[in-house]
Design a binder for these strands. Structure first.
Lengths: 176, 176
DNA sequence: TATTGTTATACTCTATAACTATA
DNA sequence: TATAGTTATAGAGTATAACAATA
């Protein structure tokens, strides 16, 4: 136990309460009502994670009728924005491992939303494109996703949403 | 980041390119450089997810020497803050399914960080406590976690961090 | 040698159903 | 009937290693 800090308010959590009723009958239930999260609430990881879970839950429910998962949606958008890109480039853009893209692209091809085309310039790689169906469906997915987006950000005004996105991007960039 | 480029690349995506070379040889590679993410960058779910992944990656690396995962850390904090709470209450507080808590608590008991004590008032439930070791170790985990926290928020000043956490909490609350 | 796409595999996280013992 | 803890299990998501073809 090193690094004794001046006041160390944080530290006292550890002392405040502990292991009561080690052997005898000291065990008593915690007080009723919502639990204390303590300094967990100040941890950016925890807060971001809880928000992400809530948002994804709503997204998945919203997109369930069209059977599109978040990662599939992001893949379709990036292919639509960058027709002809390779699987490796797609994976780098979205931080998806090449190996894990294979199954996703198989599924998107099976559903006739995207296509792999043999690249003439580099015969190792595939050029990826949306199909005509894929473009139509993506527009539909986008409309549904905007419903979700509206719900997910209904507690924010437009300026707040912009600030939130910008701060998150700064955090992510600073860790890369 | 919303850099309005001279040629407004953003808008043209749906039309710009599609399924070329359906049969013939139209496939050409996407231009070099970072890919376009298009409106994906405006989706709160995507931005929150990327930030969460970056933050957790750093947290996990930081805590690797003490072999503590994010969920384990959160469980230890909540037990420390609410000694005697039940597994069900713990699961509700952290949105962890009761079934998935069993293994985690087995592991924390095995490592002598936490204990299950038979509850006298309700013989179905267990009261949870940190051990003396658990309290000591949690203080150590917390010091390590603060190193991570500093790194994860180094791109933000204190006011910005407060704003970020508050906006995320509002978003999560509004979806529950 | 390095890279692309692929296969196989493993590990974590999460979700559900069913069981028991209590309430 | 409902709840607490448990077991078993299944499904995502993610990670690595190895391989063939190609650069």
């Amino acid at each position: 136990m090193s690094g004794v800090s001046p006041r160390s308010i944080e530290r006292q959590h550890a002392r405040r309460n502990g292991e009561e009723g080690a052997g005898a009958g000291g065990a008593r239930p915690a007080r009723r009502g919502p639990l204390q999260l303590g300094y967990l609430s100040e941890h950016i990881g925890y807060v971001v994670r809880r928000a992400q879970l809530a948002i994804f839950k709503d997204f998945i429910k919203t997109m369930a009728p069209v059977d599109i998962r978040p990662a599939q949606y992001s893949v379709l958008i990036v292919i639509g924005e960058n027709p002809g890109l390779t699987q490796a480039a797609l994976g780098r853009a979205l931080a998806i491992k090449r190996a894990n893209l294979v199954g996703m692209l198989n599924e998107l091809e099976r559903r006739k939303l995207a296509r792999r085309v043999a690249s003439p310039s580099d015969r190792r790689s595939h050029a990826l494109f949306l199909t005509a169906t894929g473009r139509q469906m993506l527009a539909r997915f986008h409309r549904l996703a905007l419903e979700h987006e509206k719900r997910a950000t209904r507690a924010l005004d437009p300026a707040e949403k912009r600030v939130l996105l910008e701060l998150l991007v700064r955090v992510a960039r600073s860790l890369d």
